[in-house]
Design a protein around this nucleic acid. Structure first.
Length: 427
DNA sequence: TTAGGGTTAG
């Protein structure tokens, strides 16, 4: 049985932890001994120390920002930049831009790091043109955009599929000697090309870099992007071929490399080969992570082997990998697809009891399952548990998959909910 | 305590 073999593969992983444990220990030991001097400096500093680690919600960041704005003299620009970075890492790009705007309006000192963060936010919001506009502020304030700034803009253009423009920026960097490109620049370009459907062009660029003399050789991120692109294009054998050459090139595959290959094989239902790659991964001392586990769980669920897939939760505990909502959702959906709603709800509860918050995907899977069984009352109950404008569009999408005999009933129900939500929003 | 990179679910 595949699951049995899978578990036995994982059980051999204890050796990995044995090897890795000294690193874990040194990582966990607090570094008081060499931080004493700086602690004392801070203790006597006139500036308060702002605790960015305590930021959990966007509101926390706003509260800290307000506190910083009230502090006199104002904190250094580095402190404001740090706060903006924390907000960006929370994927609150609009909020980061709002804070940035307030800094400009209230004449808080900024530097080229601040401007790069703002460009990054616009790019992440898929508005690279606004990012470009900020380049003007660089020159106005006497700063020069550097390789990070340009790489960020290239990434932004690629994110919205503007491949030729991104290539042009890359080309201009060299021709006009605006700055020296680095590994990030090329891996960003290669990844963007793959994500925009241009895996072949990405391979061409990769080959060009491999032949180029100099220090800017493609790294594991660039190879991962191409391997993943090939797998997603269904060209798993080509991905395997490239994967097999990595060792000779001095590139160590990491967990993402292995996950992409495993996913490519699983999607083609080449499960035995996926298992072989997992074995190789463990032999190479690369620890499987939650994504690795989820790839197998998803594949088993699609094959209708949901009970077996559920055993993965046990395996994960054994190897100290924490399940996340993605893996619970894969199982919930697996049971829903089989019409086993009691089992689906049990997994839902298991997630909640484990402290994992269900999300829109969890609710949609359950609603879809109940719709398929015609249990409209359960659908309404779930809808009321999770009704908001944000999720409404996703919930309406279930109409596409429910049996036609229930469509009218659910459609009327959702319309009445929509009307109520509209009214409450207006009031 | 200052900026840029990858993989997963309905």
């Amino acid at each position: 049985m595949f699951l049995g073999r899978f578990l036995s593969i994982f059980s051999s992983k204890s050796s990995i932890f044995a090897i890795a444990s000294p690193h874990y220990q040194s990582f966990l030991v607090p570094s008081f001994h060499f931080d004493n001097a700086s602690c004392q400096m801070r203790h006597f500093s006139a500036y308060p120390r702002f605790d960015f680690g305590s930021i959990r919600e966007p509101d926390d960041a706003v509260a800290l920002f307000r506190e910083m704005m009230r502090t006199r003299p104002l904190p250094y620009v580095t402190v404001f930049n740090k706060l903006l970075s924390v907000v960006v890492k929370m994927q609150q790009n609009t909020l980061a831009l709002r804070l940035f705007d307030e800094m400009l309006q209230r004449d808080v000192p900024i530097n080229h790091y601040t401007l790069s963060i703002a460009i990054d936010c616009y790019c992440r919001l898929k508005r690279p043109d606004f990012g470009y506009a900020i380049l003007g502020s660089f020159f106005k304030r006497g700063y020069e955009p550097d390789v990070v700034t340009f790489t960020t803009l290239i990434k932004g253009l690629l994110l919205v599929g503007r491949v030729p423009e991104a290539a042009k920026v890359l080309w201009k960097l060299s021709v006009y000697q605006l700055c020296e490109h680095d590994e990030y620049t090329y891996s960003t370009m290669i990844n963007g090309l793959c994500k925009a459907g241009g895996t072949l062009e990405a391979i061409d660029l990769l080959c060009l870099l491999e032949k180029e003399k100099g220090s800017c050789k493609p790294n594991v991120y660039a190879y991962n992007a191409v391997i993943d692109g090939l797998c997603k294009d269904g060209k798993v054998d080509e991905a395997l071929q490239l994967f097999s050459t990595l060792g000779d090139k001095g590139i160590s595959p990491n967990v993402v490399t292995y996950n992409s290959i495993i996913e490519g094989l699983c999607n083609r239902r080449r499960m035995d080969e996926a298992e072989d790659i997992l074995k190789k991964m463990i032999a190479d001392k690369v620890c499987p992570n939650v994504v690795t586990c989820n790839i197998f769980v998803t594949a088993w669920c699609k094959d209708g082997k949901v009970e077996e897939a559920e055993h993965m939760l046990v395996s994960m505990k054994e190897i100290d990998v924490q399940p996340d909502i993605v893996i619970y959702n894969a199982l919930i959906n697996g049971y829903c697809m089989q019409g086993k709603m009691d089992e689906a709800v049990r997994i839902f509860q298991l997630a909640v009891n484990s402290g994992i918050k269900p999300n829109i995907v969890s609710y949609n899977s359950l609603m879809n399952g109940y719709c398929k069984k015609g249990q409209v009352n359960e659908v309404s109950r779930l809808f009321n548990m999770n009704s908001s404008f944000k999720s409404l569009n996703s919930q309406l999408r279930i109409l596409l998959v429910v049996d036609s005999s229930f469509k009218t009933q659910i459609h009327d129900y959702l319309n009445s909910q929509l009307a109520q939500l509209t009214l409450s929003a207006q009031s």
